[in-house]
Nucleic acid binder design. Sequence first.
DNA 1: GTAGTTTTGGACTCTCAAGTCCAGTCTGGA
DNA 2: TCCAGACTGGACTTGAGAGTCCAAAACTAC
Lengths: 197, 197
Amino acid sequence: MSDTLTAKGADTRRRIIEGAAAEIREHGVSTTTLDDIRARTHTSKGQLFHYFPRGREELLLVVAQHEADRVLSDQQPHLARLTSWRAWHAWRNAVVDRYRAQGTSCPLSVLMTELGRSTPAARTITTQLISQWESDIFAGVRSMQKSGRVSAALDADRAAKALLAGIQGGVSIMLATGSIAHLEAALDAGIEQLHDV
Amino acid sequence: MSDTLTAKGADTRRRIIEGAAAEIREHGVSTTTLDDIRARTHTSKGQLFHYFPRGREELLLVVAQHEADRVLSDQQPHLARLTSWRAWHAWRNAVVDRYRAQGTSCPLSVLMTELGRSTPAARTITTQLISQWESDIFAGVRSMQKSGRVSAALDADRAAKALLAGIQGGVSIMLATGSIAHLEAALDAGIEQLHDV
DNA sequence: GTAGTTTTGGACTCTCAAGTCCAGTCTGGA
DNA sequence: TCCAGACTGGACTTGAGAGTCCAAAACTAC
């Protein structure tokens, strides 16, 4: 790819990334071929390698970053403002609704389980996603502690980690079994633990 | 494969399954080829198709069942007897030790994320694993309630689901980031919730 | 031991997907 | 207008891996 993109070129590049991401979400990384992406995005082999000269691996990495961004942005504005019980429950519902709606087409799981472990660069993306997500939850717990709604005795770090793990696992069980009950249980139990102590 | 196996044949078949499982645990499903398995198990192409006539897919399915069995058996005898706080903590430590020791070579994640979603038959195996695992945890919670150690007001079903989701997610975060902290947090928070209510 | 079956090795084919190459078209600026 | 560089289409090469085939060795039952 040349260093300068025209508007047309930038548009094509974006179309490839989004089409590839959708294809991968629907059918998985290993079964998605460059030819599938080419067909879906109405492009040619030449274009794919024009915009991603290092080929499949480079495209997958860009898709990984794209999907990681999406996982977090889909939880906004709730995730950034967990400062009241109302906000926590709005967030909880947003997460549940979001994963219920999308069924088995899931950017999070694709990233965590297929894209994320292939190369060191991809691992970095998933690690940053986890880290950012956890720190948003942690900030929410701390703000609740500061405003006195949650006991200062609660281990905020552990609570945030447990909650995040529950979401991950809930989503992954949903993909395996089709049931969203585990995700709901994990979120509800995770939020409820903030009350106790 | 013929319907009758000699002792020698049964031994070869078992060697193939275990070698394939190990190879897949270490390198993932998509990058493991029949030739890798052949080399590792000191067998030939002819043998692979002799014992698994439907080829790769059939072998993967058998490996999936093998790994599912392993996930549960590795947690015994603790998982079957969660009848005291001591037993719960022994189980907690067994799970943590087990996943800490194995690092990124993980039957659970391979099953849940790679093997398990490919075909309907493989999905059945993962669904049964989840279901059995959850019902063991649930039975443990109920027994604690019956003996009065846990409040009868606690929603045992939800607690079991949340705990299982936390383990799943903790393991999957461990594989992505290398840190076991989330798994520990999820287990500790999940067990602690049994005290509260 | 011998007939029949199971087990084994490995060469071979076939398919599919990644990546290469280049000629032709479009676009924006001088 | 014109031309350099960006964009596009698609034929082609290459390599890898799944699956086939068959002959030879080993084993079992009689």
